[in-house]
Design a binder for these strands. Structure first.
Lengths: 222, 222
DNA sequence: GTAAAAACAAACCAATCGGTCTGTTTTATA
DNA sequence: TATAAAACAGACCGATTGGTTTGTTTTTAC
């Protein structure tokens, strides 16, 4: 008995005081374990891509044994789907909270530029960008995954069009719907993100985003 | 001797006339075999994605034995890199040939719309789109591949900006470089392509492209 | 025609894949 | 405290991975 007093469960080793292992309820254990596994799945995806994110890599990152994993998930595909869904749902929710910073209403281009930079940093740079692309591509050749993710990708575009559109108004005379412009904007950011993903970051891109903000400012106002 | 008279090498089986196997020079053989293998690599990538494009799948598609393959390529990675390079170089070359259809110079929006549709159909629909994304993502987590592909991705953007820009002129008063607008345009198309890849085709997208063409028409002329 | 080289086929290989099985430890129930 | 169930660990499994080896066929050079 008490064979597992190693590492975490033994504290204050200097004083040689044994502290009982943290007692956690089974729902707590289950939830935390699944959370760890899903997080490790995304980490592996970000670090090694879909092709390189093997179950062994994921379990190593999570620090979870194969047996424990099997107790919580039936297949790797199921775990991946859950991880991807979580990632995308968070993005949808987050799209609604991106607000054009509080600037004087007359300061159109700058405020639009700030909105673009916010969206860029939140979705189309670094880890989130990588995961977004990995997950989208993984779904392409996996019917089951595609079925689960496709509606969330649609929701994201809808959310962008609607919530960003609420903060902006069409300039009188401009015959374009604000929601459409916002959708075009995220498409442009995405394409720019793919360029950076493939060819590395470009100093030109910040300038191009500002240029686009200027064009937008001719169409919308706050 | 003559153990391999099966299939291809025996013709006119009804008449039982033996026809000598087509004699091909070794450079011919080598070139055609490598071509077949590279083509099959892209096919596998398009059909099964990077994660699913195993060597076995590729060789099945090519109808080539493992031994024959080994005679022409050292590693799968090398073959994949060659296939990806070919794909992207063709795209760069093709970007230069996309011409705004011959329309009356006054017909700005329609001609720009036609250019967008040409680019959309050529690069961002169907197999080419899928391959483009697969290859870009594969490069992300493969340093060797990235090093070989990154400059070609950059070349593509440069080619779009320059060659498309040549056919167009900035409208007097518009303070935007035509090349920049063209780059923004391909970024937008790419982002739209990714949406279709992940969420399926959308009838809205043709309308959004036309809307974009309208915005462009306010900035450039022929 | 003959010998060497190139092209090709298929058996073979260690390593890894996703997944399962058996047994131990921890929590819940009574 | 006793018993069952849930959580967990690690050995194990057949299938598949990228790659190699051995041997045969075709082309080339003499």
């Amino acid at each position: 008995m008490a064979m597992m007093l190693a590492g975490i469960n033994r504290r204050d080793m200097g004083k040689m005081v044994e502290v009982a292992a943290t007692r956690r309820s089974q729902p707590e254990r289950r939830e935390e374990m699944r959370r760890r596994l899903v997080a490790a799945t995304l980490d592996a995806l970000a670090d090694h891509g879909h092709a390189g994110a093997s179950l062994s890599v994921i379990l190593d990152k999570a620090g979870v044994s194969r047996g424990a994993w099997a107790h919580h998930f039936d297949t790797k595909a199921e775990m991946l789907a859950l991880a991807a869904e979580g990632l995308l749902r968070e993005a949808v929710a987050s799209a609604g909270t991106l607000s054009p910073p509080a600037l004087s209403p007359s300061d159109g281009p700058a405020a639009l530029g700030a909105l673009l930079e916010q969206a860029w940093a939140r979705f189309y740079e670094g880890r989130h960008r990588d995961l977004l692309f990995e997950v989208a591509l993984a779904a392409r050749t996996d019917a089951e995954l595609k079925q689960r993710l496709a509606p969330i990708f649609s929701d994201f575009i809808t959310a962008v069009g609607q919530s960003w559109g609420l903060a902006l108004h069409p300039r009188p005379g401009a015959g374009v719907a604000v929601a459409d412009l916002m959708v075009l904007t995220v498409y442009m950011l995405r394409g720019m993100a793919m360029q950076e993903l493939a060819a590395g970051p470009s100093p030109d891109h910040a300038r191009l985003r500002a240029l686009w903000a200027g064009l937008l400012a001719a169409q919308v106002t706050f």
